[in-house]
Design a protein around this nucleic acid. Structure first.
Lengths: 358, 358
DNA sequence: TGCTTGGATGGAACCGCTTCCACGGGAGAG
DNA sequence: CTCTCCCGTGGAAGCGGTTCCATCCAAGCA
């Protein structure tokens, strides 16, 4: 283990001088600097991160609290985060949260100096107590995919996203419309599914085609759960002609149910999702797109700002309807031209267009 | 900032005693332990990770070096890693490597005490010098998806995987067979594409249908590059009846090319991939499956063993052919029953079977 | 009763770095 | 020529833990 004092004695200087060279602080004469750098190279010296962290109180690491980080939408956010942070010279410490207690434990251990310099929280809603604790510990926090009044955050308007979905289906002429989302009071406190439903329902109600309670389904955020809901909906005496899923993941489950039940999409059933993860492009899914990667990158930027002492601020990112191949007018509900021959064909065209645009 | 000495004075004991309580080391009488625990709770004391790391030389963090960590195959490996490590109480520090220099820089900074206690390297081939440096720094390393003679590693036999693909296509009766893989001397030193091709070619040669040089294509590991190769191959005077792609990612590009060229899969073209990422199941892709998540988990276990002082060892994980909907006998090359109606239909059946099995 | 033994405990030393303070000496100013 | 300054530098203090060593005391034993 080479230490700074070894370097100092080899270079024939004091430890303070070596430290000054390392950090470019204070003044060091040119010849001395060269001698020190030579000693560093000769010994392959690498400063101890722990010692530096203890001494300065900064670790050079940022914690990222992510629920189910292997989910595509989370991965896309993470990509934005890591790219931005590693460019700024920070390490990323990943805390995968698969249960609420895990999240609480992580926050508790992070609320101490010497762990991380800042914290990014993806999608999860920290409690006020947790935020207070982090603040007391001097750990700046940025919420991504969640608004934080008074703090830093990057968020979208899920209600407005729900409206976008509703407007699209209304424009196509749908009237029997279903919704499939998450259980709304789950242990993690996710609110996106509820907000998307609320916006969706409000827009439908305003248009005079209120969402019927028996066409609203909530279940675990799993593809098979969504598929089961799809089966139930399609088996109704008067099945819906369109379904809005609170996430692409669930929309894919609905597509499976439709294919399995022999119901052609979009001819007999329109499906619209939310998020626009990569697989949605592949499946030709119409969806409400949110800028996942950008949300991570902007969140990272806000955190860097906070670390630089700037005051917290929040950013709203825009949602955008992306029409692909799984939505069309309802059967008999309007002209549905022959250009829509099902998702699979369309999907390839879509991808080709996309790659040509790149 | 509450420190251990604050806790000690509140509890009316010495710092040593508090430390003993914290670490369950040494003997502390029951009443004293209670007083200390009460003081800890009252002050919401959380030990400083930096101080502890400096003092003990252990950080409680494991570094994970991953190239392009947002790629599905890498994410699946990462999931195995984080689950196993967080269960063991370790934090995961993620180093995304998107260029060879980035990897080298990461290794260099990690080769020092006080950064991480151990290192997992996914898919990348560290140089001997890098490994030596890490060893000198006392940082145990486990390679995942790469054999390390003398060190710890988890790997698969890519050549054998190539053979599996070849045998499947041969059994179906194919004779004009193509291969699409990565550029074989890329800057990262990935070898999987080359090994898969070698095993594939060897098996074909042994069967008397050697791989023809003009049917072997190499390009960047991107879907559009694979698609371009697909177009070229299908435009040949005598196009192949089957293609083996060195990864699912590239196989999906080939599927796009086929759909775009109006070539039906698997009727006129069989496509087989490698990896079995989630999207492959969704696309109904026949593929050589490798246990991605398990590879990460086993790698993490080997690293925990190394940290516990056990000697290094390597594990080979088995590959397995997974036949889905993108392979069939060549046109006119055998009975191809009507149960194969194309990928999309099959995919849903496949997923339903899968979920029912769960 | 006196001595041994070992459990419980306090506190100093140490981990390796940063930072601040003190000091020497050369240059510029008066 | 002398007096300031300030640049360049060495080294001690301190960051907050862990660990080892010395100490104290009570219980066990002869």
């Amino acid at each position: 283990m080479t230490t700074i004092s070894r370097v100092a004695s080899l270079a024939g200087v004091g430890v303070g001088t070596v430290s000054r060279v390392l950090n470019d602080s204070g003044s060091v004469s040119a010849p001395t600097r060269v001698r020190v750098l030579e000693a560093i190279a000769a010994l392959e010296y690498e400063p101890s991160a722990a010692a530096r962290a203890l001494s300065t109180g900064r670790t050079g690491a940022i914690g990222v609290l992510a629920p189910f980080f292997t989910e595509p939408s989370v991965v896309e956010r993470l990509r934005g985060v890591t790219q931005r942070l590693s460019r700024a010279g920070y390490q990323v410490v990943l805390f995968d949260v698969e249960s609420p207690e895990q999240g609480d434990r992580a926050v508790r251990s992070l609320a101490a100096k010497g762990r991380v310099d800042g914290l990014l929280v993806l999608s999860l809603p920290p409690t006020g107590a947790q935020l207070a604790r982090l603040e007391a510990a001097g750990v700046p926090v940025v919420l991504v995919d969640r608004k934080d009044e008074g703090g830093s955050s990057v968020f979208t308007d899920d209600r407005a996203g729900g409206r976008l979905a509703a407007e699209h289906l209304l424009e196509l002429g749908h009237e029997r419309i279903a919704f499939v989302g998450d259980i709304e009071d789950g242990p993690f406190g996710f609110t996106s599914s509820r907000l998307r439903r609320e916006g969706f329902a409000a827009a439908l109600a305003e248009a005079g085609v209120p969402l019927q309670p028996d066409l609203v389904r909530a279940g675990p955020h799993r593809r098979d759960a969504a598929r089961a809901h799809g089966h139930e909906l399609l088996a109704l005496p008067a099945p819906p002609t369109a379904v809005f899923a609170a996430s692409d993941h669930q929309a894919l489950g609905l597509l499976e149910a439709a294919t399995n039940a022999g119901v052609r999409v979009p001819d007999r059933l329109s499906v619209i999702g939310f998020d626009d993860v990569e697989i949605a492009r592949y499946a030709g899914l119409t969806t409400v797109a949110q800028p996942l990667e950008a949300s991570g990158a902007r969140g990272a930027e806000l955190l860097l700002e906070a670390l630089a002492g700037e005051r917290p601020r929040s950013l709203e990112l825009a949602l955008e309807l992306r029409v692909r191949a799984t939505t069309a007018p309802p059967p008999g509900g309007g002209r549905h031209g022959d250009q829509r021959r099902g998702a699979r064909t369309f999907l390839v065209n879509d991808m080709i267009r996309k790659s040509q645009a790149t």
